[in-house]
Design a protein around this nucleic acid. Sequence first.
DNA 1: AAAGGGGGCAACCGCGGAGCT
DNA 2: GAGCTCCGCGGTTGCCCCCTT
Length: 530
Amino acid sequence: MSSMTSGGDTRKISKGRRSSSFEKEKEAGTGGDAPLKKGPWTAAEDAILVEYVKKHGQGNWNAVQKHSGLARCGKSCRLRWANHLRPDLKKGAFTVEEESRILELHARMGNKWARMATELPGRTDNEIKNYWNTRIKRMQRAGLPIYPDELCERLTNGNLKSQNVGTFTNEASQHIDLSQTNNFDVADMELKNFQLHRGISHALHAPFVDMNESNMFEQSSDSSHTCNFLFPTMCSSKDHRESEMSEILYNSFDSCTSNVVPLFDQYYGYTCEKISDHPRLLFTPCDPVVNTSDQFNSDNLTGSHATLNGNASSSVPMSEAMKLELPSLQYAETQDGSWGTLTSPLPSLESVDTFIQSPLVEPILSDPISPPNSGLLEAIVYHSNSMKDSSNDLLLQETMTTVTAHQTAKSSTFNDLVKTEWDELGEPNSPLGQAASVVTDYAPISMCSVDGRQSRETTPDLDDEHEALTHLLGSFRKKRKPKQIDYMRPDALLDLGWFGNNTEYGSNESKSVLKDGLSAFIGEDCKSPR
DNA sequence: AAAGGGGGCAACCGCGGAGCT
DNA sequence: GAGCTCCGCGGTTGCCCCCTT
């Protein structure tokens, strides 16, 4: 990023955005009743503003025009001062550390540029915003995830907890009082935001996790951490029914181990309002069904940019800090519709835009050639290009270098299966081509519990896993096409098998409880007859 | 060397919150 | 409580520069 100007960048000064007739006013002090000037600031205007601030201090920007004669509106003055004239501004390009920090902050905060700026001394929100938008574009072009995997790992493993997310230590989350959960703060949500993105990334491979008998609950010595960690958001809703649902679900989940955990994990970051607004979204994007039971259909994939480029993202609506808004560029990619007919967009198209990709690709480990030493972003882009230039086989090979041999074996096995599957279908732009890479790329993450523990400590035979994969694929093959699950029906959801057949959910009693919960959450209207 | 396109960035716009009357 | 003003934030726009063709 080029250096920020401080009124001294003649290039920018002269370029004259919205060059209007005011441009002719070379004299800065044309205040009084003269119409307010727009466009680039001149050095003379800058000098006047600086002088004014020296005298009167910041604030009361609307008074600048009156007192200094500067023909600029207060907003313009404030902006100019904040972005260019402030003496504490840091000039020059972002350092690698700053880039990294921005990534980290964005993962936590989303597009809260002003807040991010407060944590990057000398940098302005506008600067950060511009940087980010540029970065997003570049990442998009490169088909890369926004967040580096390493950052994803760090965040998930709690490295940020000490900074701003202390309330989400496992310790704290174990004892969340549902009655107090309205008090969780923005920072909490921000971390969950990131968790969400990770969670979404888990979505695509969650079934495989389960298939490996390594579901997240089992991995964690205290599976309730997962639920507890997530439920505060649910319970923060004023909707009491949702709270009830939360409890029902929580109790249900807590009493069992099930692959539903990663599934729901992904959604607890959402606000209850949004979830309740779009009850279907609770179940759609995570889509373990995509692989395990049903529906590899466009509905499920609609919001998932992830599969387009091997990145997981989502289009589930979020609110406020939960949003990781992106420019529409992400959406455009989806709309290209290279695969899958997105016939049934999610309720809110706007929401489709609002998701950011989770880190899905492995960090740059396998490329023996170092990227140009021009910073974090360049390194990522460099890696992207390498990835893109590779054939599928190379991709697999590369993946194999980044995961353990065991995991890789599974991943490649799956890739082969998936690839074959799509080849059979003659799908040129198979999402599974992407999804497969997602799976491979994410294998290491998926094997991790929330606390970062490896889940593969107890490892089934590869043969068994291959068999399981084959079985999975067969099931996927059978079910993904026309069959449409009625997500509004608790019984249908239960029948999907998300809640496992080998768990306590298998009991009629548990099913009943869970069904009640789902009914309560989805709505009585949708409750199926018992 | 010229033309075109994209990148980068400054600045504007609209909206919403806070404070005051 | 309603209305107004100020301020700040996030999104968007428009233009210059530079690179590629």
